[in-house]
Amino acid sequence: MTRTSSSDAPVVAGAPAPAAARPSRLRSAGRLLAGRVVSAVVVLWGAATVAFFAQQLLPGDRATVILNIRTGRAQRRTPEELEPIIAQFGLDRSVLQQYLDFLRGLVVGDFGTSYQQFRPVTAILGEQLAATVTLSLVAIAISWVLMVVWVTLTAGRGPRVGAVGSGVDVVAAGLPHYWLGIILLLVFALGLRWFPVMGGTGPAGIVLPALTLAIPLAGFMAQATRTEFERALEQPFVVSARMRGMGDTAVRLRHVLRHAVLPAVTLSGWALGATLSGAVVVESIFSRPGIGSVLVTAVNSQDLPVVVGVVTLVAVVYVVANLAVDIAYTLIDPRVRLS
């Protein structure tokens, strides 16, 4: 039998040249970041565009609507009354032109003027957004603490403890914000007087609203984490660590947890968006300032520049959150190469 052995040396499969590993990793991280920024811009443009054309599709004459909002009365308007409004908002131009103007405004950070408040949308959002984002971030942080402690204590401890653990997860995940918020308010603010009844922006004022958002989220994340946690506990590397003399708690915290939190990290990106919308209910229960109440008022009164501004900013938050999730993911599991 003829054996054709090629003249060029066979490429020996093995570890890549070690020196090349680091720079190429940096380069791929840079390429990754650039790709993410491009896709983020596309997402934001899409969100803004949808918001803009949605307002074009609303029934009624825009100028009439604006004038009615300002005066607070719903009535027919004469062309003479409408003329200054049309001129002010450039409503006589083509939709395309208005759209391009709108995009130009977004690029330079000008979201237009509120119909109702006669103030720039950016100013209104600036006041309120910080409060809501703070609430969301605090809520997510609290839910992580609750989730990690609860899962580490109850996962993989036999059928009885496990049933209690996952039972609590399910109940917590199913609690509606408005009910939980009111219960917390009645018990801890009105009953025990540990926290102020009326919100305020101080550290004490944020605890109950943040808990209201955090408890269902913690239950939800715990369900995903618990499955992974129990899977990781069964892995041979856990036995190896125990055989080295590591205690059960140390194994859980130093080895297992890192494997188990990956799904929760993914959920956190989504959770930031979910808590922003959950904030609408919570802020009204605890009378907190925030984007939620701004959005509700704006939608009710058709104050469209504000609505568009909120939608776009929420999209920004989402995009940033997901980028942070991706980075956290690669830090926790360095084997993951995002492409």
Partner: peptide, 27 residues
């Protein structure tokens, strides 16, 4: 359990099969 922890690793070393899963893949 505290006595065991002192013994494991120091007095008794334990080697499992395939290190791909017997060593923590993330570390």
């Amino acid at each position: 359990s505290r006595d065991w922890r002192r013994v494991r690793g120091r007095e008794v070393g334990f080697v499992l099969q395939d290190a791909l899963v017997s060593l923590d893949p993330l570390r």
